[in-house]
Structure formats: C-alpha cells, structure tokens
Design a protein around this nucleic acid. Structure first.
Length: 263
DNA sequence: ATCGGTACCTGCACGC
DNA sequence: TGCGTGCAGGTACCGA
C-alpha cells in the first residue's frame, strides 16, 4: 500500500506527538517485530519522542538517548492515533497523552528499535524528490535491468513503489520494459521530472487510497482519482484513447499505454 | 554487485 | 451459499 506519498502523509499526521513520552509499549504479533518484544518494550518505556521523519518508505521516530523506533508499513500497515484497537492491532504505544497503534492485516510491516538509524536504511538510494539529474542519470547508466524494476529497487531511489513507478513512466512516455542503461538523456530528464511531479502532486493529495489506506487520523487520500494507468487495465488512455495494458515486470502488475509508451 | 524468482500473510472480487 | 483462483501499496532472501 504505502509508497513515499502515503508514508509522508502518515508522518505529517503523527508529528504532533513529538514531545510526548512513551509510557509503555505492548506487542502482540511477533511477525512484525525485528527483535525481542520484551527487549523492545523495555527500550521504549519512558522515552520521549524527539522527532519523527521519513526515509524512503520508512518512518523513523527519534527518541531520548539516541534510540530510534523505525516503522515500515509493508503493504497494509497503518499507524493510528486515538481510536480503539481492532482485530489487526499488533502494537500499541501508550503515550503520556493518547496512544499510537499499529495495525496490519497482512503483517508484512516491521517495527524495530535500534541505537541510531538502522544500518539497512543507510544503504538505501537517494530520495527521489532530492536526487539531482546528473546523479539520477549516472545511477541509471549502471543498471542493466528494465526501468520499471529499477524504479522499484529501493537501492536505486528510496520511496518509489508500484503505483508511482507506473504513473511516472506513463507521464514520461517511457515503456516499463525499456532497459535502464539505454535510456537517452532526454528521456532520463523527462523521467526524473515525471517522478518528482507525480510524487509531489500525490503528497499534496494525501496519497492514494486504493482499498484501505488512511493516515493516522483515518483520513483517505485523493490521488487515486489522478491515476492515469495504475489499475486502469482496458480503460482508454487519457491521452490517446488506446486501451491501457497490463503486464508483469519483476512479478508486479505493470500498467502502461502501448501507444504513448514506446520501447 | 546485480538480477529474477520466490516466500511471507490476509482479504477481496470473481466465476462456477 | 460456498469454494477455488488470482490479485493486492511491501521487503528479504535465494541462487545464478
């Protein structure tokens, strides 16, 4: 579910708990934890939240004493403030005022407590909204895989996912099966611009609510109404009217216009 | 190092 | 109504 715009929206909806203290932490699902639940609870109890940020699709909460709580929402993870626990509530942070709970039906998400930023996060690629054109071009040159697969690789850029990869490629007029290293400079430039545009607009709309994505206050996003190819298989292309096609790239459903996106 | 394929889960829509 | 199938925003891990 959550790609960069959705995670950014969630972060913005929980920044107001910065300054609050974690009174206690309860975990009831081991699958979503990186680490031992008792050790994690002990490490969190009593800590004050000093800051909340985003790194790619990871939510990073900085705590007292240099500790970090890192949350990845996986496909169906949610962070929710001020509501009642449900069937898929797997973790609850009781705060000195209110509570933050983690819900995740598919349990693909992960919670982790570490001293400082987890090492894995250091190895991710640059933020797609910050990467410069020269760096973007240089990184693409090194990749032999198809462009869609490369955009999904978090070591290439961090934060792109299936929706925004398809949408950026459509807006740039690039076929998802094109080889990354073979893209002409003009197309590389267009791709970077399309990526920045689509992510920026999606953030402005609060992300895409495909089935159940909501921010910490339960608010849906509206960018799903702006999708031009994602999950529009068979529907007419907004530019040329040709039916949108679906194929598989890197085992992911991939949507494109066969007329507007030439190889 | 990089690549493609697979595993990990639940829920939903669909056809029969 | 019920059942099987395929599909869904994710990463990690495996051999090649």
């Amino acid at each position: 579910m959550p790609e960069l715009p959705e995670v950014e929206t969630v972060v913005r909806s929980i920044v107001r708990i910065v300054g609050r203290r974690i009174v206690s932490a309860e975990f009831c699902c081991l699958r979503i934890l990186r680490g031992d639940p008792d050790q994690m609870s002990a490490a969190l109890a009593g800590r004050r939240i000093r800051g909340i940020g985003r790194r790619g699709k990871f939510i990073v909460m900085e705590l007292d004493g240099g500790q970090c709580l890192t949350v990845h929402l996986g496909m169906t993870g949610k962070l929710l403030l001020d509501g009642l626990p449900g069937r898929h509530t797997h973790a609850v942070l009781n705060l000195d005022r209110g509570a933050l709970r983690y819900e995740d039906p598919r349990q693909f998400g992960k919670l982790e407590v570490s001293r400082g930023l987890p090492g894995r996060l250091e190895k991710l690629g640059p933020e797609p909204l910050e990467v410069t054109l020269p760096e973007f071009a240089a990184r693409l040159k090194r990749r032999r895989a198809r462009i869609k697969a490369v955009l999904l690789d978090q070591h290439f850029v961090r934060g792109m996912g299936n929706i925004y990869a398809d949408e950026a490629l459509f807006r740039a007029g690039i076929h998802p099966l094109a080889l990354a290293s073979r893209l002409r400079p003009e197309r590389v430039k267009r791709l970077r611009r399309a990526m920045v545009e689509v992510l920026t607009q999606a953030i402005r709309k609060g992300g895409s609510s495909i089935s159940d994505y909501v921010d910490a206050d339960g608010r849906k996003g509206f960018f799903q109404f702006e999708h031009r190819v994602y999950q529009r298989t068979g529907e007419p292309c907004v530019t040329c009217g040709a039916p949108i096609r679906r194929t598989l790239v890197a085992q992911r459903g991939t949507h494109f216009c066969p007329h507007c996106q030439r190889r």
